[in-house]
Design a binder for these strands. Structure first.
Lengths: 227, 227
DNA sequence: TAGATTGTTAATCGATTAACAATC
DNA sequence: TAGATTGTTAATCGATTAACAATC
């Protein structure tokens, strides 16, 4: 359970809240298009749009409170507000991106941050050819040596790790010392950090390998069927 | 459980195999550097390097078979082979990337595929300014209208979805019809596909929002402590 | 033999699902 | 009132962890 004020929300539920938020926004766009006055949704409609079961959706929402009307459903707009609020998206999170290789650049150029409650306020790297250049949104890439200074100056609250694996651990430690506790990491290493730091690792190569396992399983099943 | 030939491996275990593989390779590099003749590792060393507990590592390995020596540990090289084999990485998986925006480009330019058992064989998009241009590895971007043709010609076995959300569902359906069953998706939608398709969704914005939840929880705890 | 470390068992814990009473 | 749909309970299922016998 993750305690948040009065609330205790299981991690698996927290991980699904963004899906619900996304589905709700899509649903709202749809409702606006249809302009038929319907402003509500049901747990089964929202669950379908989110890719989960309706029982799971209702159970997840129950950890946040009670927002529906029996026999009617949920008001799309107000449920959106509830979930966005639970996710802490009413404040704008100030983001630094560390490491501007392929992926770092793509992340820096992503345009959907502001709509989702985030703002990129700093870019950091060490390569002489990159430091000092202007990247996305007019930000100038600063040297990672100045990490602490930049975190302080820009009130960075989250930092995306997009460095090569070998330097990720050292950078992560400096981030945590500088007060940055929330770290989305694309570096292919298991970071060892103090308990109060929260790391979410995204491993693209790992995802491909998981799919490769399924492909191999399918191949094995097919050849067994042929034998 | 995911049946693979004789094996039945729980999904949670499958998802960790890439971590073990990564840690084993790092360990092997370390061993080569030290050149002290040690060629083994223990479940606790490997677990630490993978960011899991040693009991969990041993349990996970037990689903694949029995590869260690009691009192000694695991041979790094042969355990690497076992896990790579279980993941189906002895065959090269032929990858198409659909959608060459920010993220698609970054994925196309990623250089680590071959080392991990993958090869990018096709790039697809619809934008007139992008189709026909040369991107990573000398590949020419082809039009997504020709998706079925390209899948067939290049024997594509996996396709990375990096398109905008609204077109992802249609593209995914065409991929599955064309015989592509394994789909890593970066599109922010819940894809509705037949059972035999396997989709792994990577949602960067969602990861940030999960961290935002933790930040909000921390803030709530801090203000409670001050009251 | 003594020490180390695996592979497995059994207990615990957490997540999912089905079912339904409450209630609009 | 009848029909619909929530919020919650209880059952099931799966994943994690600790402990230890087996064995090098």
């Amino acid at each position: 359970m993750i305690e948040s004020g009065e609330l205790a929300v299981p991690p698996a539920t927290v991980a699904r809240l963004p899906h619900y938020l996304r589905a709700l926004r899509a649903l709202r766009a749809l409702r606006d298009l249809q302009a038929d006055g319907v402003r509500t949704t049901s747990s089964s409609e929202l669950a379908d749009a989110s890719g989960v079961g309706s029982a799971q959706l209702r159970k997840d929402l129950s950890y946040l409170g009670s927002f529906g009307t029996r026999g009617v459903g949920y008001d799309v707009a107000s449920l959106t507000t509830v979930i966005a609020g639970a996710l802490g998206l009413e404040v704008t999170h100030r983001l630094a991106i560390v490491g501007l290789g392929n992926l770092g650049h793509a992340l820096a150029n992503y345009s959907g941050y502001s709509k989702r409650g985030f703002q990129v306020v700093a870019l950091l790297d060490v390569a002489p050819g990159i430091v000092g250049t202007q990247a996305a949104g007019g930000l100038v890439v600063e040297h990672a040596d100045d990490l602490e200074k930049v975190v302080e100056r820009e009130s960075v609250s989250m930092a995306v790790l997009a460095t090569p694996g070998p330097v990720a651990q050292a950078i992560a430690e400096r981030l945590v010392s500088a007060g940055v506790r929330d770290i989305p990491s694309f570096a292919p290493v298991a970071l060892q950090l103090p308990e109060d730091a929260v790391v979410r690792s995204v491993d693209v190569a790992g995802e491909l390998q998981i799919l490769a396992f399924h492909a191999a399983a399918r191949a094995a099943a097919a050849s067994a069927a042929n034998a």
